[in-house]
Design a binder for these strands. Structure first.
Lengths: 144, 144
DNA sequence: GCTTGACTCTGTAGTCACTACAGCCTTTAT
DNA sequence: ATAAAGGCTGTAGTGACTACAGAGTCAAGC
């Protein structure tokens, strides 16, 4: 494979970013990675710009942005030029969503530990968890 | 629809549990809800036992159990009889997973706020978030 | 008894963000 | 010249639903 200084195949791109080959092709198909030029034989040939873009995408995913949100961010960069404040507000919005999710999960953990603590731990087929889960009243409704 | 005291259609079951009709049918197809008896015309006719089971499933889902985990819990109840300690250990295991997820999300939120705080907020196309996200070095790697 | 309208039926396809595979082709090294 | 490694397309599967389309069923009012 003709790997010059500045052109490389999908495998190298994958290695350098930690994003699987199939996932890169999936990103291309769904439009957030561009169609790269091809070699004579049809291999995708990438350059540094692709590397940066894919790193950007990977980090956004690690940060929990959905692909639609990433498209939004990339749209700012690609099309109209962007302003720092636009990007910041998207990021803060996302941080708020994460905060809410943490809150929900904390409530959830509390509920789980609380019902588990009601267990006798005995080897008998009689468990407050099972009972509570089948209860018509919402005894287990997630409490704050 | 012949709604006697103790038999009701899928619509009523849905109303009483807050689980959508399509979802109930999906649960049936995937085996965690039983095939209910049918009316002469083919309508599913449910009884209180179904109501309890569906409530159980719904709460487990709200508590973040996967369908496979719920199958495990229901298996304990359905088949072999279960012991309180079995159920408790499944629940605690799940609580630990939730705890880990909270930890991850906290790290995530911290990172998001930290990169947003580097923003000037100016109306200029020059943003540390975008820069950082395209950075070859892992400046944004999720820090603890 | 008939019509109306609300309800239910099955089956298929779409969602999100990938992942896995089959069967073939290209590139590079020996 | 050939073998090994890597790449290609296209399709299907994951989990937990959701959204139809087109047909059939039920209860109530007239």
């Amino acid at each position: 494979m003709a790997q010059t200084m500045d052109e490389f195949t999908i495998g190298a791109l994958s290695e350098n970013t930690g994003v699987k080959i199939e996932t890169i092709r999936y990103y291309e198909k769904s439009g957030i990675m561009p169609n790269p030029p091809r070699s004579a034989g049809g291999f995708r040939m990438y350059r540094e710009e692709h590397l940066n873009r894919l790193r950007f995408i990977r980090r956004c995913r690690q940060l929990g942005f959905s692909m639609a949100e990433i498209e939004g961010l990339l749209g700012l960069v690609d099309d109209h030029g962007y302003t720092c404040s636009e990007v910041r507000s998207l990021t803060m919005e996302h941080a708020d969503m994460v905060k809410q999710k943490i809150k929900d999960l904390k409530r959830l953990e509390k509920t789980l530990r609380s019902i588990a603590s009601q267990c006798t731990g005995k080897e008998v087929p009689d468990c407050p968890i099972i009972d509570a889960l089948q209860d018509p009243n919402d005894r287990l409704a997630l409490q704050s």
